[in-house]
Design a binder for these strands. Structure first.
Lengths: 207, 207
DNA sequence: CTTAATACATAGGACTCCTATTTAATGTGC
DNA sequence: GCACATTAAATAGGAGTCCTATGTATTAAG
């Protein structure tokens, strides 16, 4: 029918608004604002180039530069020349920035509880749907590519008959279910376009 | 297990970031910014008091006042005294604001397509999960109450044996499925706390 | 070795978003 | 009917986002 699409949009809108609002609350406790918090947690995980950060956050390079400057002023990050490219800067955390990032929660407690309150099957299904949506956005080049199962060479969806663990990861050579789908996997190896397209079709089709 | 919670959080984070970024793009075409766009579409649907708008958007009353002032300067909204309460102002659209709001899309085309690309069962399941999450956030008083099935007096989840249309709406006296769940229903009648709690438990339990 | 492209930084400007504080209108208790 | 909180908005002041446009290195390409 598609009439439910509209309600899903509404729901996502509500969640997005809540997310932004709670980012203000979380960040405020640390004397930051949402963008600064986002940059800090990203950079704490791994030093990044400015362009890549701007791309990930979906803001312009100039805006990113503003935020990095603000974090720099606060002594939480540092800009260092990229040895491989003299034009680029690697943004990295200082010790103070790292310890602050460590204490910042991924998400507000209420949403963690809301998700934990779902039935396990629902969580798995939700993750599968969200993965498919994100993959669509990547294909449309609306968001940058992530190291997710759907774009991984090792991912083989729906190859087992066990309904609980129908998928297979060729890297760890193990079966797993929707709940095990990754969005940022350390073992990710980029698939060819055909592989990725096939993965999506197969994962999308409900068993 | 709960290890998938973390990935769901990641997915929601990515979506929230994408959402904010695309709001800039959408709004920019209309010489607005995300908050102004949000206010305008809300007010276009129904005139609202300033406090209520601030509450819905999750920003302070002062910030809301800023944005309304900006919209006022652009001739898109108007502030009128609330006849029932001389302190309050009703924010309402002007003719120009209404026509502009009409042309603004609910969501970027790419996400509409991403959702449309899901299987129908998946969409229904997704909507159910998102509804439950939103309801949790409402119970935690993290977001304002919406006129959704889960808080409606007329909603009776899982009362039919038909797996496609297990729920029932007492207002229209008809059976419907997960895909028919509403988040902002005109016929909504607020349920008692016990009814709402029971609704949630029943809808949450997977058939 | 010029020309183009790329990676950042900066400048200027509109505006968000915050915390107070002020102004106005409405309730409440005596 | 009157002081006294309460509530709704607006305003002031300030940090900072985010934009476009431009400048400044550095690298890649012809």
């Amino acid at each position: 029918m598609g009439s439910d699409s509209k309600h899903i949009i509404t729901a996502l809108q509500r969640l997005a608004m809540f997310w932004r609002a709670s980012q203000w609350l979380v960040a405020k406790d640390f004397a930051l604002n949402p963008t600064q918090g986002e940059v800090l947690t990203r950079v704490a995980a791994k030093p990044e180039r400015a362009v890549d950060l701007a791309d990930m956050l979906g803001i312009s390079q100039a805006s990113l530069s503003d935020s990095v400057a603000a974090l720099d002023r606060k002594g939480l990050v540092r800009r260092r020349r990229d040895p491989d490219d003299g034009r680029a800067r690697m943004i990295e955390v200082t010790r103070a920035g790292a310890s602050l990032a460590e204490r910042m929660p991924d998400a507000p407690a209420v949403i963690q509880e809301a998700i934990a309150g779902l039935a396990e099957d629902d969580r798995a299904g939700l993750l599968r749907c969200l993965s498919l949506i994100i993959r669509s956005l990547q294909e449309a080049e609306a968001i940058p590519i992530q190291r997710m199962c759907l774009t991984c060479h090792y991912f083989r969806p729906h190859v087992h008959t066990d309904p609980v663990r129908p998928h297979h990861c060729g890297f760890v050579d193990a079966a797993f279910g929707d709940g095990g789908l990754r969005l940022d996997c350390a073992d990710h190896e980029t698939a060819t376009e055909e592989e990725a397209a096939r993965n999506r079709t197969r994962l999308s089709a409900v068993g």
